[in-house]
């Protein structure tokens, strides 16, 4: 399998604090990878560092055979690395369709090209509220919209920061099938999760991060059977 994203010795700082220490991470084509860890372990910072949203970071981030560490955010995203932040950040004053329009980017070679209509088929809920302002949607609907908005940029890899957080079980199920569907289309997906149950449903491989350091990596099946690791890093 071809490597999509290859992260080596990534270090990040916030103000004077050293948040990530020598983080490494890999994702292949059409693979779902889970980045697991407790609250405050450094999951969101890892994602933010990958798309160039932290003040200071160093190391190597190879995306599609290209070094992207240090590039400005919009350039990284335009190379096909989609990012869905944890707090969703819907444009509340904009309608659903306008939110999607903001995410629109030109088609990219070898990557599925999304249109508004395709996404409305993909997330039927959204189709019914095209003209509703983002601020008047439920949490689940907003989460769908934020993923759809990122897909409008025709990414080949998507970073999903805690996609199941705060959602009802039924919506979580829909979310899981949407992610598997994306994988089917050839996208790579990296999700960050505290919730092992959700990650288990969809991920091929997993990393565990704690205090900014990667403590474990392996296939999801291995991790599911490894009670020692689960208790050490994930149990509350």
């Amino acid at each position: 399998m071809k490597s999509k994203l290859d992260v080596h010795s990534l270090n990040s700082y916030y103000g004077g604090a050293h948040i990530l220490t020598d983080v490494h991470l890999k994702a292949h084509e059409s693979e779902v990878v889970a980045l697991l860890g407790r609250n405050g372990a450094g999951k969101s910072t890892t994602f933010a560092s990958l798309v160039g949203l932290v003040e200071k970071c160093s190391g190597s981030v190879i995306f599609n055979d290209e070094e992207i560490c240090g590039k400005p955010t919009h350039e990284i995203v335009r190379l096909g690395l989609g990012y869905v932040p944890e707090d969703r950040r819907i444009f509340t004053d904009l309608t659903v369709e306008e939110n999607l329009l903001v995410g629109k980017q030109p088609a990219r070679d070898g990557v599925r090209e999304w249109t508004t209509e395709m996404l409305f088929e993909f997330f039927p809920n959204l189709a019914e509220m095209r003209n509703r302002p983002g601020g008047q949607m439920s949490g689940g609907e907003q989460q769908m919209l934020t993923i759809a908005r990122t897909l409008m940029g025709n990414p080949s890899l998507v970073l999903l920061d805690e996609p199941s957080e705060g959602l009802s079980p039924k919506i979580v199920e829909e979310m899981a099938s949407a992610i598997l569907e994306m994988k089917k289309y050839g996208l790579s997906v990296i999700i960050s999760e505290q919730n092992l149950h959700f990650a288990k449903l969809i991920s091929d491989r997993a990393y565990i991060i704690e205090k900014g350091v990667i403590r474990y990596e392996g296939t999801m099946t291995e991790l599911a059977q490894n009670d020692e690791v689960k208790n050490a890093y994930l149990a509350v």
């Binding site: 798309v51 949203l53 400005p72 955010t73 919009h74 350039e75 995203v77 335009r78 990012y83 932040p85 950040r89 444009f91 509340t92 004053d93 904009l94 306008e98 939110n99 903001v102 995410g103 980017q105 908005r149 990122t150 409008m152 940029g153």
Partner: peptide
């Protein structure tokens, strides 16, 4: 209009 609300998110969607 999007940038009026959230500049960071706009650039995280690939807008310069």
């Amino acid at each position: 209009r999007a940038a009026t609300q959230d500049r960071m998110m706009v650039s995280a969607l690939g807008v310069n």
